[in-house]
Nucleic acid binder design. Structure first.
Length: 852
RNA sequence: GCCCGGGUGGUGGAAUGGUAGACACGGAGGACUCAAAAUCCUUUGCUCGUGAGGGCGUGCGGGUUCGAAUCCCGCUCCGGGUACCA
C-alpha cells in the first residue's frame, strides 16, 4: 500500500512536513524541458559524451523493464552533466514492425494511427519518469523523413555491392506471413516474434553482405568495453572455423569430385565414409537415370554386385530426400529427443585422398547444405556425430589419435599422439593438421580454409508496415534504384490488410507499377519492405544530426558525437541489433557516409538485468506486467527509480515479488526522511560538540568518495546505501549537537549525491535551500582529500589469522608501535599462550596478525 | 552436449585476500498517543550459556595462504546462451 503515507499525511494535514509528490515532479519536469538544460549543440565547448538507451519499439505505456532502462540512462546523463560534460541524450521510436500490422488486420485501424497512439503513451510515461532528453532530436522510423534516409542508405549499399538480390532457401514464418533472418529464428526452429514453427522456402530476396565484414566484426570485438558474455555470444555467432577444404574423387567418376570442409585435416586417415547433405547438387546427378546407366556402367568402377541394386538405391535415395524435405527444421535438426541419425547409402564410393582407398558415400540430414560445402568426410573415431551414424549403419571406426589410458568414451576429440595415420604418425594434432594441409596443397587436392557460421543478412519482408525497398525492376534495364530526388518512396495508405503471404503493397497496383528511373519504360516496383533491424542500425547516427536534409548525417556531427560512449539496453539484443549496427557503422564509414575512422558504434555497453515474475520475463505478452503508473500516482517517480537502483546490482535479474511494494514504500519513506532534514530550519546548538562535528564532516567526505567510485563502476545499489548511511549519521550527529555548518554541508552532499538518481526531490530541496538554484547544474562534489588522509584508521588485531579486536590508530602508524599496542592488548595476551609470537604479519594501518 | 553466470540470514543484497551479513525489507520489543497511523529508539545469522563469554557459519569435498565468501582443483544444484556448424 504505497499510497498510505501520502494519503495519511494529507488526511492529517501534515503536508507542510512532507512534500506534494505529484506537484513537485510535474513542476520540475516542465522546468527541465522548458529550460533546454539537456539540449546540446555542435558548438558546445564542454567535453562531449553520448548516452543512449536502445531504440524502443513503442508498445504502449512503459513497463518496469523500460523504467529500469531509462532510469539508468537518465542517471548517466545527469551524472555526466554534473561532471561537466555536454551529454547528447536523444530519444526516438523504432516504430515499424509487425504488431501494428497484425492489429490492422484484426481491427482495421491503420498501422500509423495504431503506432502513433502507442508512441504517445510511451512518451508520456518516459516524461513522467523524469527522464530528460533533447526532444528536438526525436526520430521515428515511420516518419517520411526517416524513410527517405533509410532508402538513401539502401541505395548506397546497393550501388557499392553491399545489398544484392538472390534466390535462397529462407525461413518462412506462417504466423507472421513473412520471411525471417536466421537471427530471428530460435534454436528450436520457432519464430522469434510469433513462436510459430518456421518453414523453409525458396524465394528471391534482398540481402546485405555482412559477411564481407566478418573478419573485422570478429577482430574488433576485442576492443569493445562490453560485457564479456555479449562479446562471447557475438564471437560464437560469427563462428569462425579454421581447417581445410579438399576434394574427394567419386570412384569411377573423378570429375564429379565433391569438396568437403574439415577442421580436422589430421584425421583423414580415419575417414571411413563420407556424407553429403540431401540438398547437395550431387544427389540429383546420382539419382538421374542417365548418369547411373552411362557413367557408372561404362566406367565399370563399381563392383557389379553393388550395381545390381543401383536402381533400387536411386529410389531409396529419392525417398529419403523427399522424407527430409517434408520435415520442418525443428524435426530435422532436433537432437533433444535422442533421435537417431538418418541417412541412406548413395550407391557410390569416394576415394580417401590420403590412402587411395574407396569409402562409401552417404546422404544424411545431419549434414547441412548451408554450412561449409554441404559435404563432409566422416571420422567416427574423433567425431561424436560421425560415431553415432557409424554405429547405426555398421560402418568401421578407426582411431587416429591415441586415447588416454582408461578412456571409455566413444569419439575422442582430445589431445594425443597420431596413430594409424601413415606419415602423420607420432605427430601432435596441431603438427599433423599443418602437415596434412601441406600434403594436400602439394598434391593439388586441397588447401587450408576458413568457414564462418555467419551468413548474409536477409532484409526483405513481405509486409506493409516497414520501410519500402526503393528498387524498380525494368525489363530492359534490370534492377534499378529509385532516383534519389524521388525519395522517400512512401507506401500508400489505401491498402487492404489481409493475412496473405504477400505484402499488401503487392496488390496495390498504382504503387506496384512504376516507370523505370533509367529508361522511363513501364516497370515493376519492389513491394517488399525492410527488416526493422535496418532502422535500428543507423538511428543513433541520425540522432547526431537530425535536421540535416542533404545527407542522413554530416561527417562533422558524427565526428563530434560518435561513437556512443554509453549504450544501455537488454541482453536480448546481444546478437541481432548489436551485430547489424556494427556492420552498418563499418560499411557507412567505408562508403564515406561516416568518418573513415568510425569503426564501432558503441564504445561501452551495459546490459541491464531482466525483471522477472513467477520465473518468467515480465512482459506484455506474458500478461504479468506491474504497471509503473500506480507508483507514479502514489509514491512518485523518484521512489520508483530509487527502488530499481537499490534492489540489487544493475546487471542482475530481479524477481518481482510481493516484497517489491514494501521496498518501494521504504524508498518513499527514506526520501521523506531526507526531505524533512533538508527543509527544517537550521538549529544552532547552544553548545557545539566539536568531536561530533568532525565525525560528521569525515563521514560526509567519505560518503562523497565512496559514492563517486560506485557511480563510476555502476554499483548504484551501494551508492544508495552509502547515501542512506550518511543520512542516518546526520540524524545521529544532529541530536548529538554537531555544528550547524557540518550538518548543513552534509545535507547538501546528500542532495548532490541523490541528484542523478531522484532528480525531482533533489531539485526541489536544493532550490528551497539555495534560493532557486538548479541542483543539476552544480558541479559534482569533490571529497576533501586532506581530511580523508588525516582520518584515523581501524587497526584489526588478529592472532593466527583470527579476529580478536580492533583499535583506532593514526593512518601513519609504524610497525613497532602497532606491535606494542597489540602485545599490550589483554585479549591478545590471552590468545598468545606463551606470550611471544613466532611471526608477525603487518598490513598497516589496517591489520596486524600475530602468529603464535 | 558445449559455452557463460550464479549458490551468503526469514527476504533483496554488502564485503574481490584481512571485523562475514553494510544498507534495506520483514519480525520482536519500547517511546509518543484516549487509541491508531506516521515518527523516533532498541533488537534481530544459528547455537550453548542466567551472565561474562564460547562454539558453529558464505552449496559440498579437498588445496594454496599467517589469513579464503573471495584464489586453485574436483563435485553438486540453479539460471542463461547455444546447439548435428563438420
Amino acid at each position: 500500500m504505497p499510497t498510505r503515507i501520502l494519503v495519511e499525511f494529507k488526511r492529517r494535514g501534515l503536508m507542510s512536513e512532507i512534500y506534494d509528490v505529484q506537484e513537485v515532479e510535474l513542476r520540475w519536469q516542465k522546468i527541465w524541458e522548458e529550460s533546454g538544460l539537456y539540449q546540446v549543440d555542435l558548438d558546445d565547448p564542454r567535453p562531449k559524451s553520448y548516452v543512449l538507451c536502445m531504440y524502443p519499439y513503442p508498445s504502449g505505456a512503459a513497463h518496469q523493464g523500460h523504467i529500469k532502462n531509462y532510469t539508468f540512462g537518465d542517471l548517466n546523463v545527469r551524472y555526466r552533466t554534473m561532471k561537466g560534460e555536454a551529454v547528447l541524450s536523444p530519444f526516438g521510436f523504432d516504430s515499424f514492425g509487425l504488431p501494428a500490422e497484425n492489429a490492422a488486420i484484426k481491427t482495421k485501424v491503420h498501422p500509423r494511427e495504431f503506432t502513433e497512439a502507442r508512441i504517445a503513451e510511451l512518451k508520456a510515461s518516459v516524461k513522467r519518469l523524469g527522464s530528460v532528453y533533447d526532444w528536438r532530436r526525436e526520430t521515428k522510423s515511420h516518419d517520411p523523413d526517416n524513410i527517405k534516409w533509410a532508402q538513401f542508405l539502401f541505395i548506397k549499399l546497393f550501388e557499392s555491392g553491399l545489398a544484392y538480390k538472390a534466390e535462397a532457401p529462407v525461413n518462412w514464418c506462417p504466423g507472421c506471413q513473412t520471411v525471417l533472418a536466421n537471427e530471428q529464428v530460435h534454436s528450436d526452429g520457432t519464430c522469434d516474434r510469433s513462436g510459430d514453427i518456421v518453414e523453409r522456402r525458396n524465394l528471391s530476396q534482398w540481402f546485405f553482405k555482412i559477411t564481407q565484414y566478418v573478419e573485422e566484426l570478429l577482430r574488433d570485438i576485442d576492443e569493445l568495453d562490453w560485457p564479456e558474455r555479449v562479446k562471447i555470444m557475438q564471437r560464437n555467432w560469427i563462428g569462425k572455423s579454421i581447417g581445410a577444404k579438399m576434394t574427394l574423387a567419386v570412384q569411377g567418376a573423378p570429375e564429379l569430385g565433391i569438396e568437403v570442409f574439415t577442421t580436422r585435416p589430421d584425421t583423414v586417415f580415419g575417414m571411413t565414409y563420407a556424407v553429403i547433405a540431401p540438398e547437395h547438387p550431387l544427389v540429383a546427378i546420382l539419382t538421374s537415370d542417365e548418369i547411373r546407366r552411362q557413367k557408372f556402367i561404362d566406367a565399370n568402377a563399381i563392383e557389379p554386385s553393388r550395381f545390381v541394386v543401383l536402381e533400387e538405391r536411386a529410389n531409396e535415395v529419392r525417398a529419403f530426400v523427399d522424407s527430409v524435405k517434408n520435415l520442418t527444421d525443428i524435426d530435422r535438426v532436433s537432437t533433444s529427443e535422442g533421435r537417431d541419425k538418418r541417412g541412406v547409402f548413395s550407391g557410390v564410393n569416394v576415394i580417401n585422398p590420403f590412402t587411395g582407398d574407396p569409402v562409401p558415400l552417404y546422404i544424411a540430414d545431419y549434414v547441412l547444405m548451408s554450412y561449409g560445402t554441404g559435404a563432409i568426410m566422416a571420422v567416427p573415431g574423433e567425431d561424436q556425430r560421425d560415431y553415432d551414424f557409424a554405429k547405426i549403419f555398421g560402418l568401421p571406426i578407426v582411431r587416429t589419435v591415441a586415447t588416454p589410458d582408461g578412456f571409455d568414451g566413444e569419439a575422442y576429440s582430445g589431445a594425443g599422439e597420431k596413430i594409424n595415420s601413415g606419415f602423420l604418425n607420432g605427430l601432435s594434432i596441431e603438427e599433423a593438421k599443418l602437415a596434412a594441409i601441406d600434403w594436400l596443397a602439394q598434391n593439388d587436392l586441397g588447401q587450408s580454409s576458413i568457414q564462418y557460421r555467419l551468413r548474409d543478412w536477409l532484409v526483405s519482408r513481405q509486409r506493409y508496415w516497414g520501410c519500402p525497398i526503393p528498387m524498380i525492376y525494368c525489363d530492359k534495364c534490370g534492377t534499378v534504384p529509385a532516383k534519389l530526388e524521388e525519395l522517400p518512396i512512401l507506401a500508400p495508405d489505401d491498402v487492404e490488410f489481409l493475412p496473405t503471404g504477400e505484402s499488401p503493397l503487392a496488390r496495390h497496383y498504382s504503387f506496384r507499377f512504376a516507370k523505370c528511373p533509367k529508361c522511363g519504360a513501364n516497370a515493376i516496383r519492389e513491394t517488399d519492405t525492410m527488416d526493422t533491424f535496418v532502422d535500428s542500425s543507423w538511428y543513433f547516427m541520425r540522432f547526431c544530426d537530425p535536421f540535416n536534409d542533404k545527407v542522413p548525417f554530416s561527417l562533422e556531427a558524427l565526428d563530434q558525437w560518435m561513437p556512443v560512449d554509453q549504450y544501455i539496453g537488454g541482453i536480448e539484443h546481444a546478437i541481432l541489433h548489436l551485430l547489424y549496427a556494427r556492420f552498418f557503422t563499418k560499411a557507412l564509414a567505408d562508403l564515406g557516409l561516416a568518418p573513415k575512422d568510425l569503426r564501432e558504434p558503441f564504445s561501452r555497453l551495459f546490459t541491464q538485468g531482466m525483471i522477472r515474475m513467477d520465473g518468467s520475463k515480465m512482459s506484455k505478452s506474458k500478461g504479468n506486467l506491474i504497471s509503473p503508473e500506480k507508483y507514479f500516482d502514489s509514491v512518485g517517480a523518484d521512489a520508483l527509480r530509487l527502488f530499481h537502483l537499490f534492489v540489487g546490482p544493475p546487471a542482475d535479474d530481479f524477481d518481482w515479488t510481493s516484497q517489491a511494494d514494501e521496498l518501494i514504500e521504504g524508498m518513499a519513506k527514506f526520501l521523506s526522511r531526507v526531505y524533512r532534514l533538508a527543509t527544517q530550519e537550521s538549529e544552532k546548538p547552544t553548545l557545539v560538540n566539536e568531536k561530533e562535528s568532525a565525525t560528521l564532516s569525515l563521514a560526509t567526505h567519505k560518503a562523497i568518495e565512496k559514492a563517486t567510485i560506485d557511480y563510476d563502476r555502476w554499483s548504484y545499489n551501494t551508492v544508495v546505501s552509502t547515501i542512506m548511511t550518511l543520512t542516518n549519521q546526520i540524524y545521529k550527529s544532529k541530536s548529538a549537537n554537531a555544528s550547524d555548518e557540518s550538518v548543513q554541508s552534509a545535507i547538501d552532499a546528500v542532495i548532490l549525491l541523490l541528484a542523478p538518481m531522484t532528480p525531482h526531490i533533489a531539485a526541489e530541496m536544493w532550490s528551497l535551500r539555495h534560493d532557486g538554484e538548479i541542483v543539476h547544474v552544480q558541479p559534482w562534489p569533490e571529497p576533501d582529500r586532506t581530511l580523508l588522509a588525516l582520518a584515523k584508521e581501524t587497526l584489526i588485531l588478529q592472532v593466527g589469522g583470527k579476529f580478536k579486536d580492533k583499535l583506532i590508530v593514526d593512518p601513519d602508524i609504524e610497525e613497532q608501535e602497532a606491535l606494542r599496542l597489540a602485545l599490550a592488548h589483554p585479549k591478545i595476551a590471552a590468545s598468545l599462550l606463551n606470550g611471544a609470537p613466532s611471526r608477525v604479519v603487518y598490513k598497516l594501518p589496517k591489520l596486524i596478525n600475530l602468529i603464535p
